[in-house]
Amino acid sequence: MDIKKKLGIGVLTGALGLSLVGGGTWAAFNDVEETTNVFAAGVLDLEIGEESTMDFSLDNLKPGDHWTETLVLRNNGTLDINQILTSIEVTGWEDVDALDLNSKVYDGAGNNKLSDFLKQFEVTVTDGDGNVFFDGTLNQLHGQSNIDITGTDTNTVGLSVNDNMTYQVDFKFKNVDETFDGSRFQVQNKYQDEQAEINVKFEATQMPGEEQSNGWAN
């Protein structure tokens, strides 16, 4: 039974109840029956588990440094979750030429775009079964929206009530041994002192509506 239909019945029942009360005092014999209809909505609650370390802050990184974070998603509600649509945005970046490469190497040598900076970071996402889910750069993840990470279709439960999903996320600041032509300066120097913030949004969706008999629906 879909929500619209459920609400419709609720309104009709209410109206009928009022007329019965109004007409009930004249006759000597009468009988009154009431029905009680309970419609309690369930709770769809995706929780980022306490074991998650995806809220991290790292400063003073150098090329070659690498680190591992854990993402735990838990269905903490009373309704099964269908899909978990993930969107990633990177914010808070600005171009910095810490070594003044623009004057030491050539005009423009110290400049880069956000995409250049994000390409310096390799990201590998591995699911709980050890399957590599994503292997690429942060730049490929930036701007992705509504990517389902449960791997299910719209009619299959992606994360059932009380279940967990765990992902391991490995980050690496690439170390690229490449200098500017005719210069000792490494090209990656242009990224010194730059920073960014990765914002990841996880949206859990409900399962499709269905016909329900009495009892605990979902």
């Binding site: 998650s52 809220d55 400063d59 150098k62 990224y191 920073q195 990765i198 914002n199 990841v200 996880f202």
Partner: peptide, 17 residues
């Protein structure tokens, strides 16, 4: 029905000078 959760991570490169 949906539910939205967010994570936010900062990372910053150091300087070698």
């Amino acid at each position: 029905f949906n539910d939205v959760e967010n994570t936010s991570a900062d990372f910053a490169a150091g300087t070698l000078e």
